[in-house]
């Protein structure tokens, strides 16, 4: 894995968050996946971090010298899959 990551490279493509923004969030004090998510929205898009979470973990462990385990995982909230408003509006059986 290359150390000199391009700053403009997207990490979270749903929310279009770049490596630069992730690094900025770490500089501002983010220490785990949730910290990055709150500051940048990485992992808050359609896929809910299914694609980018591991990359966020890798950048965190690289920049902070911590293990992937220490970077944690994001909190899960329903709906875990996108639901359209029309379906929601019909209510729940």
């Amino acid at each position: 894995m290359s150390k000199d990551l391009d700053d403009d490279m997207f990490v979270c493509r749903c929310e279009e968050v770049t490596v630069r923004e992730i690094r900025q969030a770490i500089a501002e004090g983010a220490r785990d996946v949730v910290g990055i998510k709150r500051r940048t929205r990485a992992g808050m898009g359609l896929c809910q971090g299914r694609t980018c979470e591991k990359m966020v973990q890798q950048i965190l462990s690289q920049e902070l010298g911590i293990s992937p385990e220490e970077t944690g995982t994001s909190s899960a909230r329903p709906p875990v899959k996108p639901v359209d408003f029309g379906t929601l509006a019909k209510g729940v059986q």
């Binding site: 990551l5 391009d6 490279m9 990490v11 299914r50």
Partner: peptide, 12 residues
């Protein structure tokens, strides 16, 4: 399970 991605310039 879901697939891991690999980051490199242009992966999107």
């Amino acid at each position: 399970a879901s697939e891991n991605v690999v980051r490199f310039k242009g992966w999107t």
